[in-house]
Every structure is written in structure tokens, then in C-alpha cells.
Design a protein around this nucleic acid. Structure first.
Length: 821
DNA sequence: GGATAGCTGTTACC
DNA sequence: ACCGGTAACAGCTATCC
């Protein structure tokens, strides 16, 4: 039969020793469909150079005889073919060795210890990835398929009977078709418990929110007889709650089951409680339970109904561009949805005072937010999945290096490239021990207050260097062969003229990004934006990938060369701009800022054109902007200009503040606000007068204790386990206090505290940490601390630029008192 | 016992 | 272990005299 079909998830099973793929998805009517398919499995044996035809033939015969009886499976080499291929850009002769079962490729590789074979490759990319590459049935793309309906078929051991789908087909062929965007069926869930430790507490309630309109809270807590909102469904106990949850999920059968931090909390918690009650957590379409795996983070994967922890996708693909200070559901929802969690503090509701109605509402809203976040990010997830060609379940848990690597692996065929192997444990260890490469160049700025500035920066600098200079593992050459060359410390590295497939693929990504950016401008919507963004993120990650120790195509030399070029081009740009008579104020990695002087904007733009005409390949600088004024301060210690700290105002009055305490979350809100206002006033007015008056008022307010405690809280992240700290800084002490008071805090959490007046009467120097108070603790804030350690340090270097010594004005430690103000 | 250099730790920039 | 080098800076801690 014929139908339109879109794959959402992949799995595989063995039958009579062979691998079969299960492709879960939907037809165009929204029916649940599963395809059964198969593909040839093989690995590559790369031959040494100059082996005679006879030798190869006899080698093939030997390999054909390989039979293994392992793990209760008989596997054998089924055929062997000789191919002309490429490996790392070099032509090679290679044997394509076909086997019965993908899982045995590794063992076959180990049995290929023939002296004619130089390398064995292509047995470690995973069956699903291998299948997608071979059969081109790619995730989240529409196909017109032909297949034979399986109905309790014995052909694959009756596999179709065990699958909870409406239709199961044996795939005959699949042809890609153009079709409108797919809208998946989605269900979000969230649990509330009485203890955050997995396995310790009980699940009090569980909420569901779905694209089908589902809004439900399952609970066994609260007054059973009291009238409740209609979304609340009462159950007998925790066991029934879990059973009902499974029942709901299976009945709704969403393509994606979504949680927020659910890999690390909700699903493991449910698993622990289900085990306690002897319930099987059959959330997969094949009735299996979630598979938990431990990497750096716990993962909880299901089949057919794909479990996705949306937090993990956000962390990989979005966190670097976000304003939110933490990745809590509340912060992320605020930033992307303009919505927040319902206010509810479990601690206030303990004992008999529990307001269950409010709790249900809170619980439901968390699922609603999670669902909304998924819908918000769906266009991006689809694009990443389509570009990278990996199913969303895996991709949503992967890092950017995996995105890049998958993109490469799925595109090797057109270069006839045999895939490089994954580095082994020892290899990774070795790579990690290597000395780190030198990074970008940062120019020391001249502290001061400047007018009429211009900023140029290189467009996608690292990316355009890789492409223009043809830098990659496979283009690195022993000798100078006429391609790019670069000095890195005492070494000199050479790259081939022949295009490498990684620079080539990156160029393709880069071009497509340009095209999709244009398309987005012409037709702005969430999908065109997401497409443009996916290519942007991916192309910007290739340099990081090349220097990542876990990468197949890791190349230290390439990474060092790219960065050496980054320094070289930036320094050359600075020199060129200075030679043209401009005073350069700052430069960092890919940017240069200078004073426009008497030159007109047109002249500046012409100057930029000239610079660009002299840059090689696709390298290009662009005008970041014209700025009316800019401020650079000196370092706190010494006279040197502080790098990575500046503030500028453009001609429309927009501020660009970098590095200052204003943008740092580990300073109290008041210090950040005051500094921000001071910078603002100075940049707007062109002098410090108004800012000075403002500062006087603030200092008076602090002195008179008119500042609310909330503005004085210092927030610092707890980056390690409390016990792992060597230095007992204020935030560590605050975290210990929280532990004592049984306030939940764990690694990664934000600690809020303020510094209180010292009332102990002890003599001698007191440490800051001895005066740490948690937000809710009573105490008077320490006026001296907030003046000398927060407000004044935040502004003194700014006023110094105007020749004003704030320390003299507001001396607090010396003879002068604050009373004057 | 005080000064200070150096270390630990966090956060930002690109 | 899932991009990482460059940088500023606070506050603690070791070390010196």
C-alpha cells in the first residue's frame, strides 16, 4: 500500500540474527504508523598501498571465510567488495565487508589482522545512523512510501503484534516529497513530590498538558470530598497515580512526551516509585520501560513515544544566546514565553495548612509552561534534526560537537569518504593532556572617554578562516605544498590546496545559512528564522568541534592554526587602520574599534571596502556600527586599561555595555543599577556632573538604611558540591547555612545572601564570610561593606577617567566620614 | 600582626 | 567529558618580615 509518512523515531530489533529497523512515525492523516525495514551492514578495511591484484583476491577469499559464533549469534562475512574510496582526502583502495549483524562489526574488525590491511573503519557509527545514511529515510521529513501491511506476520517473528500502532508496514520504497510543516502530537508532564531526593519521597500529584487539549492533574492528596476544578482527577494512592499516568500517555500516544529537567528528576523519580509499587513503566510503544543511561547526565529514553527533556535542548542550542541568569523553568519561561510559574511555596504550606487547590494549579501550570516551551522551540528542533539527520530523541540530549559530527557523517558519501573512527579511551586521555592552544588576541585599550567611534568586525571569523585557508585534519600536510601556511609558536603548519571535505561542508553550511537568512528577511516566520539559526549555530560550532578532544576529526594543529590566523588577521587589521591615520582604541578576537576623527561615514565605508578587497578568500570585515561616545576604564589594580570592559552609546542612544559589573550577576542589584545609571548618564551627557549628583544621593540612601534588602542580595552559583570547596568564600558559607536550615540547595543552584553588620563585638579584622546572612535572615545590612565593596568599586574607575578620585570624596575607612553626604 | 602575593572561584567576552 | 582561551576581579590563605 501507498501512503505519506514522516519518521519521528527509530529503533531496531534482531530476527534470525539479522538487524531490522523500526521507523515510528505518522501518516498524513495523523495515524500512528511503524515501518519495518532493513539495510546492508558493512565495515571498511583500508588496504596498504601497492598490493597486487592477486594478493587482494586471496585476501578477499580469506575474509569471506570469517564466521563468528559470539553472544549466542552466528555471524559471518556475507560478501566482500573492492572499492576505490577516499580516506582523509587521500585516495585509497578499500574492502567493503558485509556482515550479518551490525553488533558484530566490531568483532569482525578485530579478526581482520592481516598485514595487507592498514585500517579498519565504519563499524562504530551506530546502527540507526548507519541505517539513515544507507536508506535515506531521514527524520522529520515527509515521504511517499510503498509498503506491505503486516498483520500478525510471522516474517519478523510477529514483531508487529507487540507494537501499539495503528498500522505496521514492511517498507518497500520511500521517496521524499514536499509538504507543509508537520505538527506533532505532544504531551507535557510534571510531578510534585514531598522530597526532592529520588527514591525518598512520594509523588503527590502529576500534571499533564497536551496539544490535544489535555489538561489534567492526577492526585491522591487533598480533600477527596471537596469540590475541585474539573482538571483534577482523584486517585486512590501513589500506585494508582502512576498507573493512570501510563494509561493516559499510552491512550493519547503523543509523538513526544516532554518534561523540564525530566531526564534528571521526573522520570527517574517515577521509575523509583513504580519499582516500589511493582509497576512496569511501559511508556514505549513496544511496551518497554524507559532506558536510563548515565553520561555526564542521566538520560531517560523511550521508544515511539519519544521522551524529551526540553531543558537539555535549550542548554545546547540556546543557552549561549540567553539573557536568563539560570536555566530554571521560571527564568526560561519568562524569557521565551513572557510567562512564569505560579507562585507557590511548598515550605509555607506544610502540615495542616496545605492549600491543595493552589498546589494543583501550580502543578498544572508547570506542564503548560513546558508544553508551551516545546511548541516555541519545535521549529528549531525540527530544523536541527533535519539538517543534522539525527532523530530528535538523541539530538535533544546531544552537545554541539555531536551536531557537527553527525552533519559530517551523514554527508561523507558524496566525497566517497570512509568515516574516521571515534577516539578510544586512551586517545581521548592523551588529547586532554596536551597543552592547550593559544587563543585570540586582545588589545589593551587606552582608558578614557572618547567621541565618534567606529567598530569593524570580521564576519564569522573562525568559520571563514577554515573555509578560506582550507584548514582541517584532512588537509594538514607534512610539507609546504603551496596551500596555506602559518607559524604557531616554534612550529609551522601547512595545509593542502586540494579542498578538504570539512572546509567544503562548512562552506556549504555557510552558503545555505546566507540563503536562509535572506529567505527569513523576505518571509519572516518561526520556521525561516529557525532554519537560518540552525545553520548559523552549526557553522559557528565547527571550529569548536575540531578542537574538541572527543571528536573523530579532532586536530590540535588545525585548531591552533585557526587561532593563529585569528590573531594574525586581527593584528593586521589593527595595523592597517592605524596606518591609515586612525587611533585604535580596542580590539578583541575579531573586532577593532577606533576613533573616526575628521573622516566622514562614507569615507569610513570606502575604507572598509578597501580593507575587504585585500582580505583572502571569503574573509570579510563588516561595519558593526558608528558610536557617539565610548568609555574605557583602567584595571582596578594599576594604570593599565581593562580589557573586555567597555560601554558605548550609538547614534540612536542605544547602549552597549560589556564586562562591567552591571552585566555580572555576582554583584548586588544596587551596585549594578547604580553603575548602569552612572554609565548611562555619562554617555548621554558627555560629562560626569549628573552622575556625580546621582551617586551622592545613592550613598546617602545607603547610609540612612533606606535601601531594601532585596537590592543588596548577592547571588552566586554553587559550582561544586559544598564539601569540595577548598576556599570558604561567602557563598560557600551561605550554602552551608542553607543546608543547616534544610533549605534545598544543590550543585548548580544559585545562592542568595547579603552582608550584615558585625554585632559580635569581636576585635580585629573580620572576614566577609563571618557576616553572611541569607535573604530571609534578620539583620542590618553592613553599610561599610556595601559602600566600600560594592558601590564604590563599581563606579570609581569610571569617575577616574574624568580625573575624579571618588575614594577621596567618600572615604569611609580614613578620617573623613560619610556624614558630609 | 599586617602587608601582600598567590591561589581559588565566578563570571564575562568572543 | 560533551566549544575553550583570555580576562577581570573578590575574597581567602600562605608567607614573609
Amino acid at each position: 500500500m501507498k501512503m505519506q509518512f514522516i519518521p519521528t523515531d527509530y529503533d531496531y530489533f534482531d530476527f534470525q540474527g539479522r538487524n531490522y529497523t523500526l521507523v515510528y512515525g505518522r501518516d498524513d492523516k495523523g495515524k500512528r504508523v511503524c515501518l519495518v525495514d532493513s539495510c546492508e551492514v558493512f565495515l571498511w578495511a583500508i588496504l596498504n598501498e601497492d598490493i597486487s591484484k592477486e594478493k587482494i583476491d586471496s585476501l578477499i577469499e580469506k575474509i569471506k571465510k570469517i564466521k563468528l559464533d559470539l553472544k549466542g549469534r552466528n555471524t559471518r562475512v556475507e560478501k566482500v567488495e573492492l572499492h576505490s574510496m577516499n580516506f582523509l582526502n587521500n585516495p585509497v583502495k578499500a574492502l567493503k565487508i558485509f556482515a550479518t549483524n551490525y553488533k558484530d562489526l566490531q568483532d569482525i574488525a578485530e579478526n581482520l589482522g592481516f598485514k595487507e590491511i592498514e585500517k579498519r573503519r565504519g563499524y562504530d557509527i551506530g546502527y540507526i545512523t548507519h541505517y539513515i545514511i544507507e536508506k535515506k529515510v531521514e527524520p522529520l521529513k515527509w515521504y511517499e512510501i510503498n509498503g506491505e501491511i503486516l498483520n500478525n506476520s510471522q516474517e519478523f517473528g510477529g514483531i508487529d503484534m507487540g507494537l501499539d500502532v495503528e498500522l505496521c508496514l514492511k517498507l518497500e520504497n520511500a521517496n521524499p516529497i514536499k509538504k507543509e510543516e508537520f505538527t506533532p502530537k505532544v504531551l507535557a508532564y510534571d510531578i510534585e513530590t514531598d522530597d526532592l531526593k529520588i527514591g525518598k519521597g512520594e509523588i503527590l500529584m502529576l500534571s499533564l498538558a497536551g496539544t490535544d487539549g489535555t489538561k489534567k492533574v492526577l492526585t491522591w492528596k487533598g480533600d477527596k470530598n471537596k469540590k475541585k476544578p474539573e482538571y483534577v482527577e482523584f486517585v486512590e494512592d501513589e500506585a494508582e497515580l502512576i498507573e493512570k499516568f501510563i494509561e493516559n500517555v499510552r491512550k493519547i500516544s503523543p509523538d513526544f512526551l516532554i518534561g523540564y529537567f525530566s531526564d534528571g528528576f521526573d522520570l527517574p523519580y517515577l521509575k523509583a516509585r513504580a519499582e516500589k509499587h511493582n509497576i512496569k513503566l511501559t511508556l514505549s510503544l513496544d511496551d518497554s520501560q524507559p532506558k536510563f543511561s548515565r553520561g555526564v547526565m542521566l538520560s531517560a529514553k523511550t521508544k515511539g513515544i519519544v521522551h524529551i527533556d526540553i531543558l537539555r535542548f535549550i542548554r545546547t542550542a540556546y543557552a549561549q544566546y540567553m539573557k536568563s541568569e539560570t536555566l530554571t523553568l521560571n527564568d526560561v519561561a519568562s524569557e521565551f514565553l513572557g510567562d512564569q510559574k505560579k507562585k507557590f511555596d511548598i515550605a509555607d504550606n506544610l502540615g495542616g495548612k496545605m492549600n491543595w487547590e493552589k498546589f494543583y494549579e501550580y502543578n498544572l501550570h508547570d506542564s503548560v509552561l513546558t508544553l508551551n516551551l516545546f511548541e516555541k522551540f519545535w521549529p528549531d528542533m525540527v530544523e536541527f534534526s533535519k539538517v543534522v539527520n539525527e532523530p530528535l530523541g538523541d539530538l535533544s540530549r546531544a552537545g554541539l560537537s555531536k551536531y557537527v559530527e553527525s552533519y559530517i557523517l551523514h554527508n561523507l558519501k558524496k566525497f566517497k569518504e570512509i568515516p574516521e573512527k571515534r577516539p578510544g579511551h586512551n586517545e581521548i586521555g592523551g588529547r586532554r593532556e596536551e597543552r592547550s592552544v593559544e587563543g585570540a588576541f586582545v588589545l589593551e585599550p587606552k582608558p578614557g572617554f572618547y567621541e565618534d567611534l567606529v567598530v569593524f568586525d570580521f564576519t564569522s571569523m573562525h568559520t571563514s578562516i577554515i573555509i578560506s585557508m582550507n584548514i582541517s585534519k584532512e588537509t594538514l600536510s607534512e610539507k609546504n605544498v603551496g596551500g596555506a601556511k602559518i607559524k604557531v609558536g616554534a612550529n609551522e603548519y601547512y595545509f593542502s590546496k586540494k579542498k578538504g571535505f570539512i572546509p567544503e561542508l562548512l562552506n556549504e553550511l555557510f552558503e545555505r545559512r546566507k540563503k536562509f537568512k535572506e529567505e527569513y528577511k523576505k518571509n519572516p516566520n518561526v520556521f525561516t528564522k529557525a532554519r537560518s539559526n540552525a545553520f548559523k549555530v552549526l557553522s559557528a560550532s565547527v571550529h569548536g568541534y575540531i578542537g574538541f578532544f572527543g571528536a573523530r576529526y579532532y586536530s590540535k594543529e588545525s585548531s591552533a592554526s585557526i587561532l593563529a590566523f585569528v590573531r594574525q588577521f586581527n593584528k593586521e587589521a589593527i595595523e592597517k587602520i592605524e596606518k591609515a591615520g586612525f587611533e585604535v582604541i580596542f580590539g578583541d578576537t575579531d573586532s577593532v574599534g577606533f576613533i573616526r576623527g575628521k573622516k566622514s561615514k562614507t569615507e569610513i565605508k570606502d575604507f572598509l571596502k578597501k580593507i575587504n578587497s585585500e582580505l583572502p578568500g571569503i574573509m570579510e570585515m563588516e561595519l558593526e556600527g558608528f558610536f557617539r561616545r565610548g568609555l574605557w576604564v583602567s584595571k582596578r589594580s594599576g594604570k593599565a586599561g581593562a580589557k573586555k570592559k567597555y560601554a558605548m552609546i550609538d547614534e540612536e542612544g542605544n547602549l552597549k555595555i560589556r564586562g562591567f559589573e552591571t552585566v555580572r550577576r555576582d554583584w548586588c542589584f544596587l551596585a549594578r543599577e547604580v553603575q548602569n545609571n552612572v554609565i548611562n548618564m555619562i554617555l548621554e551627557d558627555g560629562n560626569e556632573k549628573r552622575a556625580m549628583e546621582y551617586l551622592k544621593k545613592i550613598i546617602k540612601k545607603i547610609k540612612n538604611r533606606e535601601v531594601s534588602k532585596g537590592d543588596l542580595l548577592i547571588r552566586t552559583q554553587l559550582k561544586k558540591e559544598i564539601a569540595d570547596y577548598i576556599a570558604q568564600g561567602p557563598h560557600v558559607i551561605a550554602a552551608k547555612k542553607m543546608k543547616e536550615q534544610e533549605i534545598p540547595i544543590e550543585q548548580g543552584g544559585l545562592i542568595s545572601y547579603y552582608i550584615a553588620e558585625d554585632k559580635s563585638g569581636k576585635k580585629g579584622k573580620r572576614l566577609v564570610r563571618e557576616r553572611v546572612m541569607l535573604a530571609h535572615e534578620e539583620g542590618d545590612y553592613d553599610i561599610g561593606y556595601y559602600l566600600n565593596n560594592q558601590i564604590l568599586p563599581a563606579v570609581e574607575n569610571i569617575f577616574e577617567v574624568f580625573g575624579i578620585d571618588i575614594g577621596k570624596f567618600f572615604e569611609t575607612k580614613g578620617q573623613k566620614t560619610l556624614g558630609d553626604f
